[in-house]
Write a protein that binds this DNA or RNA. Structure first.
Lengths: 246, 246
DNA sequence: GAGTGGTCTAGACCACAGC
DNA sequence: CTGTGGTCTAGACCACTCA
C-alpha cells in the first residue's frame, strides 16, 4: 500500500504509532501543547504526518490510556490537566467507612519566605540555600484535624505566593495555575508509614507514637522542572489502599 | 458492510468488542478456559462468533490490558496465571535501597487445623465455625525477620494442606496449585498501617509501637470463590510505594 | 510452510457537539 | 449542516514459532 512516506523521522523496527506518540509527547512536554489545549484532529494529524487515520487513532488511544490526553466525541482531543484526585490520598476515607467522599477543609497556620533546607533544594534541583516559600497546612474533617502538610515552593517560580493577600483554597494548585499562571504538569508520590512525633501528635490529637501514613510529593511544571516538594502526614487508622492481583 | 449477524447475543448500544470481551470473560470465570490455557486464535474466534478480525483483536487487547490474557507472537493467546509479583508487597525493599530484588526466605512455625474465627469465616463466605487450615509464617532477609504472615485456608477446599508431609515453599500458592491442583485465579489486597504490639515486636525484633505496614489479602479460586484470607505485617521503615499523577 | 499475532491502511457508518 | 471521535470491516504485509 504505497501512498507515501511518513513525514516524521522514523526509526527502523519502531512501529509507526510509537513515532506518532513520541511526536505528540514532545509537543506536550515542550509546552507547545499546554494542559487544556485542543490538539489537531485525527484527520489533520494523519494528513500532516502522512500516516493513516488508524495509526493516529492507535497513538492517541495509547496516550489517552497514559492520561496525557482525553477525548470528547464530537468535540476533539485535549491535553489533560493534572488531576490530584489520582493522588494516593484519595484512599483516605476519613470518618465514613462507606466509601463516600468526605470533604477535608484546610487551614494555613504558617506561610513565609525562607532559605530552603539543603535536602529540599536538592530535590527541587535549585541552588543551595535558594529562596523558598514555605507553607504549612492542617486538614480537618469537621472539627478534627486529620492531616498535616508541609510544602516548599521554589520561590523564583511562584512570585507572590508568599503574600498574605493571596488566599489559598483547599486545592492549593488552583492558585498557582489560575492566578500565578504557572502550569502544573505532573507529580510523583511516594507512600510510607511512620509514627507520630510529639508535635505531630498534638496537632493531630493522637497519642505519641500513633501510626501515620506519610506521602512525599514532588510536583513538576513544564519541561520537567520540579517546582514543589511536599510532605503530608495523616492518621493511618483511616487509610486503606485497595488493589487486585491477577 | 452486511456480511452476517454476530452469532453471540448482542445488546443494543453495546459495542461488539465488549460483547466479545464478555464472552471471553465468561469462558474464563466459569473455568472453561483455565489459567495457562491457549485460547482460540483471532481468526477462529472471528469466524466462530461471526465478527471481524479487528473486533476480536480489540476485545483481546482490552483483556490483555486487564492482565486476564497474554499473547505471544507466533504462538497464540493464553489465559493469564495469577502473578503475585503484582502484590503490593513488591514495594518492600528490605535492606538494599537500590531497588534490587532481595530474596526473602520464609519459615513456618505454626501449621494446624482449627475452627475458623467468625470474621474469617465471614470473609471466606464459609459457614460459622467451619474448619480452617491456619498457617503462620515468618519472612527473613538474611537472618533478620522482616514480616509475619497469618493465613486461614478453607479446609474443605485444600485437603491435605495441614499435613506436615507437605513441604511449603516460599511461594505457598505453588503447593496449592501444583500439588493440590486447586486453581488460584485472583486476589484482592488492602494496604494499611499499624503499630507493633508486643508479640509482633519481639518476633520482628523492633521496638514496641514501631510502625508496620499491614496487607490484608483475600485470595479467590474459580467461580469467584474465596479460598484464603491472609494478613501480613511488615516493618514500615523499608516500605515505599511510588506513583505518578497526571 | 502453515499458523499465529503485530502493524498499517482504507473506507464505511454511527453518535455526538455546536453553529 | 459540518466536523469530531467511536465502531466495525476487509485485507495487505511483516515477524515470530514450530513442526
Amino acid at each position: 500500500m504505497e501512498t507515501g512516506t511518513p513525514s516524521i523521522p522514523s526509526a527502523p523496527g519502531k512501529p509507526l504509532y510509537r513515532v506518532v506518540e513520541d511526536y505528540l509527547r514532545r509537543e506536550i512536554d515542550s509546552g507547545k501543547l499546554a494542559p487544556g489545549d485542543l490538539i489537531p484532529s485525527e484527520s489533520e494529524l494523519a494528513t500532516e504526518l502522512n500516516v493513516s487515520g488508524g495509526t493516529v487513532k492507535k497513538a492517541i488511544e495509547n496516550l489517552v490510556w497514559e492520561r496525557r490526553l482525553y477525548r470528547h466525541q464530537g468535540k476533539g482531543t485535549y491535553v489533560s490537566r493534572i488531576d490530584f484526585n489520582n493522588s494516593l490520598f484519595r484512599f483516605f476515607s476519613y470518618g465514613t467507612h462507606s466509601g463516600n467522599p468526605v470533604r477535608i477543609h484546610k487551614e494555613t497556620p504558617v506561610r513565609k519566605l525562607c532559605e530552603g533546607p539543603p535536602e529540599i533544594c536538592q530535590k527541587l534541583q535549585a541552588p543551595h540555600q535558594s529562596q523558598m516559600v514555605y507553607i504549612e497546612r492542617v486538614g480537618y474533617r469537621g472539627e478534627t484535624p486529620v492531616l498535616i502538610e508541609k510544602c516548599w515552593w521554589a520561590a523564583a517560580l511562584v512570585p507572590g505566593l508568599e503574600s498574605e493577600e493571596v488566599h489559598i483554597p483547599d486545592l492549593m494548585y488552583a492558585v498557582v495555575v489560575d492566578q500565578l499562571k504557572v502550569p502544573i504538569v505532573r507529580a510523583e508520590e511516594i507512600l510510607t508509614a511512620e509514627i507520630a512525633d510529639q508535635t505531630t501528635a498534638t496537632t493531630l490529637k493522637v497519642d505519641l507514637g500513633a501510626p501515620l501514613v506519610v506521602l512525599n510529593r514532588l510536583t513538576y511544571t513544564q519541561k520537567n522542572r520540579p517546582i514543589e516538594f511536599r510532605i503530608t502526614r495523616g492518621r493511618a487508622d483511616s487509610f486503606s489502599y485497595r488493589t487486585e492481583i491477577r
